[in-house]
Design a protein around this nucleic acid. Sequence first.
DNA 1: AACGATGGCTAATCAGATTAGCTTTAAGAC
DNA 2: GTCTTAAAGCTAATCTGATTAGCCATCGTT
Lengths: 230, 230
Amino acid sequence: MRRAGLSSQDVVAAAAELADEAGYQELTMGRVAQRLGIRVPSLYKHVDDLADLRRRVATQAVTELGEAVRDALQGRSGLDALTATLTTIRAYVTAHPGRYAATTGQQLTDPADPLVTASSRLLDSIAAMLRGYGIADTEMNHAIRTLRCTIHGYAALQAADGFQWSADADESFGWMIRFLDRGLRTMCLPPETPPASARDAREGAPDVPAPCHADRLAAAGDAAVSSQPG
Amino acid sequence: MRRAGLSSQDVVAAAAELADEAGYQELTMGRVAQRLGIRVPSLYKHVDDLADLRRRVATQAVTELGEAVRDALQGRSGLDALTATLTTIRAYVTAHPGRYAATTGQQLTDPADPLVTASSRLLDSIAAMLRGYGIADTEMNHAIRTLRCTIHGYAALQAADGFQWSADADESFGWMIRFLDRGLRTMCLPPETPPASARDAREGAPDVPAPCHADRLAAAGDAAVSSQPG
DNA sequence: AACGATGGCTAATCAGATTAGCTTTAAGAC
DNA sequence: GTCTTAAAGCTAATCTGATTAGCCATCGTT
């Protein structure tokens, strides 16, 4: 019989496409083999096992996403950069829900893992965006983590079920961007600075640490930040 | 042989405990049966199948979480209420990572589904928190969605790997709360209101819809908001 | 033309979910 | 007290999907 002549890359690519088209839960050895026109056991010549394949798909996703974000950030700063970042991520997750789904739930422990490397790059881009945004170094870790939560939450929800929340999803997305923008812009000013609004900031807030001084930064290159890609 | 005399509730409870203790990926019919001291096929007298069991665990989680948040919000408003909400959710997810993990990836389509009901209640609590926070009705949907993304992102990341991001996670959590607080307080003021900061808000922001007027609200009881629990 | 690594295959195994069908308990009807 | 019967368990069997073992063909190299 004629050989297909596949590489690991081909297998991962097929898996990624399959996940996007049929849903991440359909990313199975059988479906991948079928798509490639080979039998299931042959896949094991190219990947270790299903977990390995999933992890490679996740790595590809984070890599692609990181490149897209880096490209989108060229020459931008402030709200412009924030908008570009979120828009890019949203577009990516919309186009590749299965790939993004693969990234959720991956452990990032081994520093030599390509997935960890790719995640670090993505977070570096976000950090650069925030730095150009005027976030102080002392706040950087907190800001990255906060933004990461919001972005990951948005992306995870979107990847999970395509956001059926009706027609005004675009507006909500824009609102979210403006929300983040304002939060970032006011975050490093003294606590009293935000304009007196219709708000009663009670005194007895349960257990929030003191405002606006970040001690003990976990140093640079803090790979622990990226405990989860995206 | 002696009967165990189990109910569906017992099975779900055992599954929830198992998921918390051993991790969501260990939530398997075999492990659940083992924990209950019965054989695997007997489980099918109490639940339809594994998907049903998972969904019930998710429902229990969202219900418990909703009750906890509702309790925590008693007599609070503003930053106090926001802090209570997030602190409660964080505590719940920390105590019950497996349960929370069960909620991610559930579809919420059928309005009669108990999971949908429970999710709606939780979102109602969050809406009440925001309303008491001074968010206009026209912005409510956007605010809920935004907050939901951040909360879900935080919870999902935490449930996935327990947040190994080093020692200052608490500080980041506090920072995030203050960030959200400031964002919410400044969000419904005219765009120019936020104090001129070290920021250059460029003009050419890619594609964000116009600021601060929300048209076409998806009416009340908008179950589509809860496309994902938590 | 031989060769050796590579990529593919069949057959078999294993794990986990699910189904079929039987048996016994235990709760209520008489 | 017995009788009946639905519910709750069980064993055995099936099915799906992942994985392993071991064989064979292809292809680039010598």
